[in-house]
Design a protein around this nucleic acid. Structure first.
Lengths: 252, 252
DNA sequence: CTATAAACTTACCATTAGTAAGTTTTTAGA
DNA sequence: TCTAAAAACTTACTAATGGTAAGTTTATAG
């Protein structure tokens, strides 16, 4: 007998919720996918809070509100769990970049989209940087993580090169892109390791300084850059402040 | 009865050896110091080989040729052991920098001493970079490591600022020093995480590129830089290739 | 409604960090 | 040179952890 008061299990309820969320491009998620997402979120939080060494299955389960057994059911071992966390963080960065890129119409704006995507507040803060460094230390020992990392680096490098080609020769663009990529990594590391936090604004200012040194900068192009930065920052404030994006990202 | 054939224990033998080593500024080391040095070397090697997560007291002991108990006798827990490893790596960098600084006579050469100290082959290679990233992930969770790390950063930053003041205004020097510091960190991270190794030369070239962008570079000063780099590289080859230095460093 | 697959639970084992109490070796002092 | 204390080392143990395997419940396809 079916009644209006049919009881739901917790996972049915969550499944139901997830189906109702108005995210664009949302694939119907299996229970497994939902759980894996919840759990890799919790694992990220654990790594951020306790560090790699002190992150245990039990703590991850605790943060997700489930038992250690559930975590181990969905992830065969710690390596795979950390790979999932790593993949999750990186696709978050990718999605942010794509979102900002959509609104960038000039090469200059595309440059700034890359910068802002990397250092917007929701993405760049001490907790996240610390977790990133911890996860990075797994890269040499996981082919999976290596692939993700090189793909991410390659894409940022390629985007930078393309944008820079409008201001520099191919060779110079190539070199400048590498410098900016290294600088991005450096800022992320410092963001995690420096005792006082490194603000989003400070990070972006640092990138701006480098850009102005690397590009031929007369009066006009400086103003162009200022405008581009302002526009993309505004776009980011709107696009990355939206409910849909926040739901997906906020807890990271 | 004392005879010429009096047998020595292993640690007596090592102690004897260490006393005979012709290292300048060698303080007589207690057994404890010798052991701690051996063990933190072994721990570094373990972190480099297996990563932070897979580094156990037993493996460290194995690499040092002693039992796990000995390691735990000299280091109360893993955190303290890793702090010792971290301190050891950083003082190695410091000593190298001091050694090269002694031979640098102009501001330009001092700049290059900093660069070369950070990226000379004995110090900068994939294994070491990977280990450094692993150790870095401990920094947020150890006040000791934090202090070491900030001191190291502060010193490099200060050295850079002083040298740069001869080419730039105080403010510009300040900013350029920060950029170079960030770039150094970025190169170290990439050196560890990139799939293909990053050569010492490539790293130094990258720094040179940045220097030329940051400093006012006319024909003359470019030649000056080339000469300074060449001189310090040569000095490094001799000073850092010496038997005494090698003994201290080689196994890192 | 049923059979199969998937989610979850539980009890268990091997490894590991760390302790505590022992034995041996070294060192400092008479 | 002898002795007592300190330090080095060893061993046996515990608690926590990563991981397995087998069982039970829940979901789903036909």
């Amino acid at each position: 007998m079916v009644s209006l008061f049919t009881t739901f299990t917790a996972i049915q309820y969550e499944f139901c919720l997830s189906a109702l969320l108005p995210l664009k491009a949302k694939k119907t998620s299996s229970i497994r996918e939902i759980r894996r997402d919840q759990l890799s979120r919790a694992a990220f939080e654990a790594v951020a809070r306790y560090g790699l060494r002190r992150t245990t299955f039990e703590k991850v389960g605790e943060l997700a509100g489930v038992s250690k057994g559930v975590v181990l059911h969905h992830f065969p071992d710690k390596t795979v769990l950390l790979e999932a966390v790593f993949r999750r963080s990186n696709s978050l960065l990718s999605e942010t970049l794509v979102e900002l890129y959509r609104h960038a119409t000039t090469p200059c704006e595309r440059l700034w989209a890359i910068v802002i995507a990397n250092f917007f507040e929701t993405i760049f803060n001490q907790r996240v940087c610390q977790a990133w460094v911890s996860l990075a230390s797994e890269i040499p020992h996981s082919a999976q993580c290596q692939r993700i990392q090189s793909a991410c680096n390659a894409r940022i490098d390629s985007n930078l090169r393309h944008a820079l080609k409008h201001f520099l020769s191919t060779e110079d663009a190539h070199h400048a892109a590498r410098q900016l990529g290294l600088l991005i990594d450096g800022i992320w590391v410092r963001g995690g390791l420096q005792s006082g936090a490194l603000s989003s604004k400070a990070a972006i200012d640092e990138m701006e300084f480098a850009l102005l040194k690397l590009l031929p900068s007369d009066e006009g192009s400086v103003r162009q850059h200022r405008q581009a930065r302002k526009k993309i920052e505004k776009v980011a404030g709107i696009a990355l402040g939206s409910r849909a994006y926040q739901d997906r990202v906020l807890q990271l």
